[in-house]
């Protein structure tokens, strides 16, 4: 039982981290119709940015702040301006291929320019553990859960309660109507990219201690984020949270009780089950087929 509680807790913590990457992914899709196959690499880059920051003598928190700023600039503004904007109107397929190309390019770039080896990465919450009712709990799990939980809940509140957040949702639902209402659509879309940039940087901060900083770490994270987003419902931002936690918990439990070798296949199995039964995801709403 204590084992189970432990697995559950760390599963929820990992799941909350997946949920952040998934949430950013969903937001980009909603606001700009961009399916970002490079989302995993968008997590990997800030991890290396923080590593470089620390190797230059900055403490972790300071390099995190620098990484957030860089992310907004590069993964937010530059990505939008130089890749997404010029491809407007050229269809989902081209965007998919372009972001896949970006994924290959970024991976190889880091491999070539930095290193092909995995690098250890410190946890901001330290390595200590404590015991509660016989359950061993690590500070980093609790910290990740709380941090990720706050991010997701905070973002939900921002989207639902603030004027800017509501404007962003309006843009996501109907760009033309939003424009007619006088909403600055371009700026709202940029905000979405900026939020995604922040989300991936936080994801990097929380997940790299377990995954280690490696050029191809994004393969796994990206895939989990996609699956979490689709399981929860591609057009629903709360779905990303549900999907992330489901994936995190189930793969932890399956890894311990069924087979550790196929732990990474759990997300796929869950994804296939969900799309076969409910193609729009657990919390998604059906989309009309358009002629």
């Amino acid at each position: 039982m204590t084992d189970f509680m432990q697995l559950l807790l760390s599963g929820v913590a990992t799941g909350a981290i997946y949920a952040m990457a998934a949430l950013g992914f969903t937001l980009l899709w909603q606001a700009a119709g961009t399916i970002n196959f490079a989302q995993g690499e968008f997590v990997m880059l800030p991890a290396f940015a923080m590593l470089i920051g620390m190797s230059m003598g900055l403490p972790l928190w300071a390099s995190f702040i620098v990484a957030v700023a860089l992310s907004i600039l590069v993964l937010g503004a530059a990505f939008k301006k130089w890749i997404v904007d010029p491809m407007r109107g050229s269809g989902v397929v081209s965007v998919v291929v372009a972001t896949l190309g970006l994924s290959i390019g970024l991976k190889s770039f880091v491999k070539a320019s930095y290193s092909a080896e995995p690098h250890p990465f410190p946890s901001i919450f330290g390595d200590e553990v404590f015991k509660l009712a016989g359950v061993t709990i690590s500070y980093s799990d609790v910290g990740a859960l709380v941090f990720a939980g706050l991010m997701v809940v905070g973002l939900q509140a921002f989207l639902n309660k603030t004027i800017t957040g509501r404007a962003m949702q309006a843009v996501a639902q109907n760009t033309f109507a939003a424009e007619a209402l006088g909403i600055n659509v371009k700026r709202m879309i940029f905000y979405t990219f900026a939020i995604n940039a922040i989300l991936v940087t936080v994801t990097a901060l929380l997940i790299t201690p377990t995954y280690l900083a490696k050029f191809d770490m994004g393969d796994n994270i990206g895939l989990k984020a996609f699956f979490a987003a689709i399981i929860g419902g591609f057009n629903n931002s709360r779905g990303a949270l549900l999907g992330g936690i489901l994936v995190g918990v189930l793969e932890n439990l399956a890894g311990a009780y069924l087979t550790p070798a196929y732990k990474d296949g759990v997300a796929l199995a869950l994804f296939l089950t969900v799309i076969l039964i409910k193609p729009d995801g657990l919390l998604g709403t059906p989309q009309e087929r358009k002629v």
Binding site: V97, L102, I104
Partner: peptide
């Protein structure tokens, strides 16, 4: 390894 990087960015 730069080749693949160039390859990926060329695709973009």
């Amino acid at each position: 390894d730069w080749y693949l990087a160039v390859f990926g960015f060329t695709a973009v």
